[in-house]
Design a binder for these strands. Sequence first.
DNA 1: ATTAATTATGCAATCGATTGATAGCACTTG
DNA 2: CAAGTGCTATCAATCGATTGCATAATTAAT
Lengths: 341, 341
Amino acid sequence: MEKEITIYDIAKRLKLSPATVSRALNDHPAINSDTKTLITAMARQMGYRTNTFASNLRRQRTNTIGVIVPRLNSNFMSTVLAGMEKVANEASYNLIISQSLESVKKEIANAKTMFNSRVDGLLVSVAYDTDKFDHFEAFIKKGIPLLFFDRVIEHKQCTSIVIDNVKAGYDAATHLIEQGCRRIVHVTGNLKRNVYADRLTGYQQALRQHGLPFDESLVMITDLSQEAGTEAAKRMQAMPERPDGVFVTNDFCAVCCLITLKKLGVSVPDDIAVVGFNDDPVSQVVEPDLTTIHYPGAKMGEVAAQSLINHLNGLLDIQTTNKIILHSELVVRHSSLKSGK
Amino acid sequence: MEKEITIYDIAKRLKLSPATVSRALNDHPAINSDTKTLITAMARQMGYRTNTFASNLRRQRTNTIGVIVPRLNSNFMSTVLAGMEKVANEASYNLIISQSLESVKKEIANAKTMFNSRVDGLLVSVAYDTDKFDHFEAFIKKGIPLLFFDRVIEHKQCTSIVIDNVKAGYDAATHLIEQGCRRIVHVTGNLKRNVYADRLTGYQQALRQHGLPFDESLVMITDLSQEAGTEAAKRMQAMPERPDGVFVTNDFCAVCCLITLKKLGVSVPDDIAVVGFNDDPVSQVVEPDLTTIHYPGAKMGEVAAQSLINHLNGLLDIQTTNKIILHSELVVRHSSLKSGK
DNA sequence: ATTAATTATGCAATCGATTGATAGCACTTG
DNA sequence: CAAGTGCTATCAATCGATTGCATAATTAAT
């Protein structure tokens, strides 16, 4: 274990002051470029590495971004995180990632931890049943930028990164209607969450526009788990007036629903057409393969991280941009293509 | 933006010295418990939060663990990370996560970044074609503990967390043999990686034990991508002497292989039985559902993080334990159950 | 030649918490 | 009563980088 090199060591060696060394390493304009070259070379030669803590302590910033997500282990979320990691890494920011496991309580705890670790900014996708903003107030009060993505909370001081969920819901439902569906079940999650509420709105708009009635009993609020998909299939099959289409706001849930339907002897898509959401790889594996909404996960992560970093570097004020909407699109596969058509 | 409270503020308020406050907050034995109570209460009341940087600077540790993984967005990896995050969080360690995207070059860069951020320890699952240890030497030299998981590099100073891949490979192959398979293809990855080399060894052991010849032409080295699965299926179907079983060391790849086989008119499992690896959710969705090796991802993450943290806290010396082997098991589903049996 | 302007470097305080050495005090005990 | 023993609490130095202000050196301008 060799001794750690500091700017003082470099300064002594070159008979310069630590201040000059510090400035040179930070490419400060007041330092002569020859001196800079000299210092940089010596730093490399001696194996110097910045002590981030001393630097952070002095500067009062951490170069760290906090991320709170419901779960790490979904394809969508890990793609988002991959996107964030890429951007953050390039801008030499560190990411501290924590998961709320869909519980508000854990989310509050995580927010507190993030606050105490003094992240420079926070990226959040809220838990299933979060309905208060209280645990984020501390950030606002301290002026720490807060940015929501995917599952967002609308707040005048925070930017949101989302897709147009109303449109996505509308597209999905319209597609089913165009395939001839007239009784379309909608399996979704907690309507407190923008994503689910908006998709429902889109679904309703599509119905209205095509002169179909909105039947509340066809909307199933679930936790979108695999079991929920199975359960939904059973309920659909047992309905007196059987539906002819279903729009599930999650691919994995949709796939389980689809499989169960098949097991129950319901033909997909002819008896019931199925549309999912997210374009999870699983949707290409099931038979028939699943029509779904493609959702730009990596992009969302990148945009979220980049916006935050731009704000932190003073390039862009997060307060001005209040919402960034990414493009999403319907991917038609076989689970929704009625053969009569 | 209110002012940040420091231990000096608390000290002044209580007419004590900052040293006492610091010790009280760290539950130092030399402080009277009444004083401690008083200080803790005042700290809470004044809204004090530790300045980690000052603390880290002084203590020379960061309370941060670095993690380098090939990719974030696989079910297995995100489960592992979820496990790590849980343990780290509880022990109040932060996690800095970065991905090598399967490239040695990026892995080296990541290692350097981790080194410069002075992580207290490092958890690594190496990239597809990493074959040198050089970029980790710096850690060893500085005495920073390094722990490999899943895709490991054997090194006398590092602990590895793995499953018994030889046994897993053996189990998979034996199962196929017991189902009556005699010509078993093995689709695997880069044999530099312990996981793939070991599974191959297990596969060979099973063959030998059952008096079957080892035919090198039946081993396909691929990148285990989805395309590789499709490709493997095509090659198998085109073989003059058609194989009757296949063991693919990755579920997603196996699933693609399975689907392609079906498309090519090969019956699964009767013509060709298929076994995968990882127990990815996708294996339960495909038809027939996929026999696979269950692999304790979350547990692996937890054990890895916990071992490292124990070592950091001096509870356990990582040098003594050189290898931790977790339990894995074969999960039999329909893709491998020949109907004749 | 003198002053002003410009450029380059150094001084020294500062960020906030930690910790080895040390002192004050109450109490015991021979 | 002097010396010894615990407790508690304080002092002051330290971790390493940053930065406002001062100063020195050089050049340009008058």
